[in-house]
């Protein structure tokens, strides 16, 4: 069992979730309630990682993050490190390829809140922030939760993008999915088996928790 790979995967998944939570709430609300001309285009762009082969996405990110690209140069100037083959680069890529997994469930959840509920909140004197905190987030919570779990589980399992952008540096960019592949390559099937089982268990727990939480909410809402 490669504990450092597991820890790295968990760290990556946690950070991705932390970054995507506010971003997803903001983008989810905007896409749910605002009407603007380029909206279909933006929605299509955000959904792209769902259909794009991970290696293709990984290739473009590798090019975009490289020392020759403006983004790579800027990062190098600011931090003194390169973006590719680093944890920061991996996190950046992880946030990008998880966008649809985080935003779509949140967007659907916010779409389900009628405009009148927000109108009622405004008439009750609730500020925008208080409406978000007291009314919108509690009502959208099942969607937000499933978005977070999807993001978490998806990050743990992602392989192609991670390999392309992060490479396979133990302790820095070697996630558990990569470590499993690595073990299989070196004929350590027992190690690969244990890690696969660990990943399976974590994913199952995460998904199970969401279903439990949402099903516990439902009967209370309907009795």
């Amino acid at each position: 069992m490669d504990w450092s790979a597991l820890a790295l995967s968990l760290k990556l998944a946690a950070w991705t979730m932390i970054i995507l939570l506010p971003l997803g709430i903001w983008l989810g609300r905007v896409l749910a309630w605002r009407r603007f001309r380029r909206k279909p285009l933006i929605e299509a762009m955000l959904a792209l990682p769902l259909v794009l082969p991970p290696t293709v996405l990984g290739y473009y990110l590798l090019v975009a993050f490289g020392g020759a690209s403006p983004l790579g140069q800027l990062y190098q100037e600011l931090s003194g490190q390169q973006l590719v083959f680093s944890f920061a680069g991996l996190l950046f890529a992880s946030v990008l390829f998880n966008l649809p997994f985080a935003i779509q469930p949140m967007q659907r959840a916010f779409e389900a809140i009628p405009q009148e509920v927000r109108d009622a909140a405004a008439c009750c004197g609730l500020s925008h922030w208080r409406t978000l905190w007291r009314i919108e987030i509690p009502l959208a919570w099942p969607g937000i939760l499933s978005a977070l779990v999807l993001t978490f589980a998806h990050t743990l399992g992602e392989f192609g993008v991670v390999l392309m952008v992060g490479g396979n540096i133990p302790g820095e960019t070697q996630t558990i999915a990569i470590a499993i592949y690595d073990r299989v390559q070196s004929f350590d099937t027992a190690g690969a088996g244990i890690m696969s089982a660990a990943l399976l268990l974590i994913s199952l727990l995460a998904i199970g928790c969401t279903y439990l939480t949402t099903s516990r909410r439902r009967p209370r809402d309907h009795d």
């Binding site: 109108d119 009622a120 009314i135």
Partner: peptide, 11 residues
Amino acid sequence: FVFQHYVLFPH
């Protein structure tokens, strides 16, 4: 404001 379908906060 009393709305037509009341629009109470359901939660």
